[in-house]
Simulated scan of single mutants.
Amino acid sequence: MTTDYQQSRVSLGGRLRELRGPDSGRAFAARLGWPQSKVSKLETGRQTATAEDLRAWAEAAGHPEAAAELEARLQGLESRTRSWRRQLRAGHRPVQDALTVEYERSTRLRAWEGAMVVGILQTADYARAVFTQYAELQQSVRDVDDAVRARQRRQELLYQPGRLFDIVMWEAALHTAVCPPDVLAAQLDRLSGIIGLDTVRLGIVPLSARVRIPPANGFWMYDDRLVIAEDWHAELWLDDDDSVALYGRVWGLLRENAVYGSSAQRLIARARARADAV
């Protein structure tokens, strides 16, 4: 969790405490029908309120007019940290559509991924396996097929001139068994076919490479204006200059150890042979 995000959450909690007034936390929680611990966590910035929580709080505090202000604070907080719990209430498809907008706005897209094949290069079957697993983890709406179709349509951007996808992946991503072996084999064939495409520069960091920075969470950079980094609980949407510059340096350090062209093909072929042997 970012320091700025936590400070904003604490600030929102302070405003909630102010609105509660002289009532005890126990009495206020009883009025809302909540556990007292929830009131305490919201006021101390240890839990993020939902929009529904904020409207209920304003009503219970006798200040319904404050609901709009509280929701504006929440929207400002979530402009940087977008929890999966909130984003996936309507399923994965809306999330994919929102991302497509950022892809379409960009001309140079840089990516790092160490855990699996990046979404823009996934086959339909591979993507289906990934979405299914995340839907189970997040207990979200099961709109897997809609999400797969949205991701596949986005891949049309790979063939439009004037846009460069500069992607770096760790070799481990080629071996991660997030799907059956035959699906992984087809996915690796897809990667082999991408190499040489004029709109895609695909680099693979070998497992044996002496890296200058530990490989960590995956992220995308959209030109020099936006970074979207994923964590288990949320996506971070970072557009301040310092954060974008930091991720640019991280991406550059990881790229230094990547191999391209025929060398990348050999790593993919090695992973393909392993998938066939399973």
Rank of each mutant, 00 (worst) to 15 (best):
V200L: 06
L19A: 07
L236F: 13
Q36M: 08
E136S: 13
L202A: 10
P64V: 12
T123H: 01
R274Y: 09
A90L: 11
W232E: 15
A216H: 07
L236E: 07
A127K: 03
E113P: 02
V95A: 15
V144A: 10
A127N: 04
A264M: 07
Q265S: 14
W112G: 05
D242Y: 08
L158F: 00
R249W: 11
R93P: 05
A56V: 11
V141E: 12
S8I: 08
L202F: 08
N217E: 15
S106P: 05
R105E: 01
I120A: 06
R272D: 01
Y247W: 08
A56L: 14
R201M: 08
W251T: 10
D97M: 11
L267W: 02
G261N: 09
L174H: 01
R201Y: 01
A245V: 12
L12A: 13
A51Q: 11
L16Q: 02
Y260F: 14
D198S: 14
L253E: 14
E136H: 09
R31L: 14
A258C: 11
Y260T: 04
Q36Y: 06
G45I: 04
L164P: 01
I228H: 05
M116R: 11
R142P: 11
R85A: 15
A58M: 04
W112S: 01
Q160I: 13
G21T: 06
Y5Q: 08
V178C: 00
Q187C: 00
H92K: 10
L19V: 09
W84L: 02
A60V: 01
L70V: 08
A98F: 05
L188C: 04
A258R: 01
E136L: 13
G162V: 03
R128E: 10
R46G: 15
A90S: 14
G13A: 02
V183S: 02
G45W: 02
A115R: 08
S79G: 14
A271Q: 04
V211E: 06
H92A: 15
W57T: 07
P94K: 06
F165Q: 03
Q155E: 05
Y222K: 07
T176Y: 08
A49F: 06
A61Q: 00
M221C: 00
I213Y: 12
R15K: 14
Q133I: 09
L99D: 05
A127P: 06
G62M: 04
W34K: 10
A58F: 03
R190I: 00
G248E: 06
R274W: 13
R82Y: 07
A209M: 09
L246E: 14
L99P: 00
E171L: 00
L197S: 10
R212I: 10
R26E: 14
R20F: 04
A135R: 07
L74R: 08
Y134N: 11
V205K: 00
G14C: 03
P22L: 04
T50G: 15
G21D: 04
V148Y: 02
W57N: 13
S262I: 07
T107C: 01
V205M: 02
T107H: 02
A269D: 15
Q47H: 10
L77T: 11
L74M: 10
E59M: 10
R266D: 12
V10I: 15
R73N: 05
L238S: 01
